[in-house]
Amino acid sequence: MPYIVPVPDELSKPFWDAVQEKRLIVQHCVACNSLQYPPRPRCLDCNAEAMDWKDVSGKGHILTCGVLEDSHLPVRAADQPLNLAVVTLDDDPRINYYANLPGTPPFQVTVGAAVEVTFEECPDGSLIHDWRVI
């Protein structure tokens, strides 16, 4: 799949570095122990700035799903119809990810199905996290 290549910034660099090592990490609040993704400068729960990173299981479930059929993003249009799902993380279901669910044909996705993280290759050879039904 020709994923659009994410461009890391100062805040997100540790996350994308971990993805290149096939590890899924999320931000962890040192003050209140909360987890969050995508990373932000402060904790969404207690507003603390002291955040580090924590490895997570890479297990999740499909919250909901649609199918991209006429995307505004020409790079992804080549893959249409393309699953676009929202996956919650089992470690903390408040965290969710977009997913294309490689290996599952469009319109054959079951909401609630268990998934696990997979690391797929972008056009520039870098890795990106996606999710597969298990």
Partner: peptide
Amino acid sequence: TFAAPKAPGASQWNNPWGANVIDL
């Protein structure tokens, strides 16, 4: 920017999977 092959800034968390805010 919609045709860009790269996703900087906030779009790094949605555009790679095609999760464009207009389509959604």
